[in-house]
């Protein structure tokens, strides 16, 4: 197991954002993490990579306890992530953004090697033509790619993707899904939070579903898609329920 999440609970004031969630992740897999808005998906990521201290439970990554480690330590161990709300280093160039990932991630590369890796990764996500521009000149879709490029440049064992498909048009979604598959082919394990059902169902080996912080279903995409509780959970989110139903129809 590359990652073991055991009874993770996160309470904000009176709100239990993540409630006693446990799951294991095998190396080389893509795990889809779905659930309605506010279900606690991003919070779960924040618990895994050390942004929030856990209220209860533990996270074990490649045999090592992550509890209480600062985020930079977690990055050093080979866990990289993207942010749902993009966080580009605005006044640095696109290439420099990616070099930060390469220089300070698992491999701790020097500047020379980091430059080469940055250029490779930028070509891989299709941002090579913008390498010299400031990051704040990118549009949102490009910034999502930049998030991904930075995480990849760290050459992590485990990659957490938080809604990298949101806000992309259908062509861009197809391109990104393709990219995600290629990343897995590199041997990188992935957890992806996603709202776009067909994409998540297509690409994931397994899917887990959060609702109000609780894990309500776990299984193959087909199993989860037929789960009554999951459909009901999404009915609380009319927009998503509609999309889900539409996808089932067509």
């Amino acid at each position: 197991m590359i990652l073991e999440v055991k009874n993770v609970t996160k309470v904000f004031g009176g709100l239990t954002a993540v409630n006693d969630v446990s799951f294991d992740l095998e190396e080389g897999q893509i795990l889809g993490l779905i659930g309605p808005n506010g279900a606690g998906k991003t919070t779960l990521f924040n618990c895994i990579n050390g942004i929030y201290p856990l209220t209860k439970g533990s996270v074990i990554f490649r045999g090592q306890q992550l509890n209480g480690l600062p985020t930079y330590k977690v990055a050093d161990l080979g866990l990289a992530r993207t942010h749902q709300i993009v966080r580009p280093l605005n006044e640095l160039t696109v290439r420099e953004n990616v070099m930060v990932g390469a220089c300070f991630g698992r491999k701790n590369m020097g500047l020379g090697q980091a430059t080469e890796v940055a250029d490779e990764v930028l070509a891989f996500v299709g941002l090579d033509k913008r390498a010299g521009l400031l990051a704040n000149s990118l549009n949102v879709a490009q910034k999502k790619r930049l998030e991904m490029a930075r995480a990849l440049a760290a050459q992590p064992y485990l990659l957490l993707l938080d809604e990298v498909l949101a806000g992309l048009n259908p062509t861009e979604v197809t391109g990104m899904v393709d990219t995600i598959r290629k990343i897995r082919e590199q041997g990188i394990t992935i957890i992806m939070i996603e709202h776009i059902m067909h994409a998540v169902m297509n690409v994931s080996d397994r899917v887990i579903v959060l609702n109000y912080g609780t894990l309500i279903a776990e299984g193959t995409p087909a199993e989860v898609q037929g789960n009554q509780e999951v459909i009901e959970a999404y009915l609380g989110d009319p927009d998503l329920a509609e999309r889900l139903l539409e996808e089932e129809r067509g």
Binding site: I51, Y72, A75, A80, H83, R87, L89, G101
Partner: peptide, 25 residues
């Protein structure tokens, strides 16, 4: 021009994001 400086500038732009990328801020 150094890697150290790149880390500092990452901190300047977004300290939390820099730490997530591994900069020991």
């Amino acid at each position: 021009k150094s890697k150290f400086g790149l880390g500092l500038m990452a901190i300047r732009e977004d300290e939390d994001a820099a730490e997530v990328m591994g900069v020991v801020a």
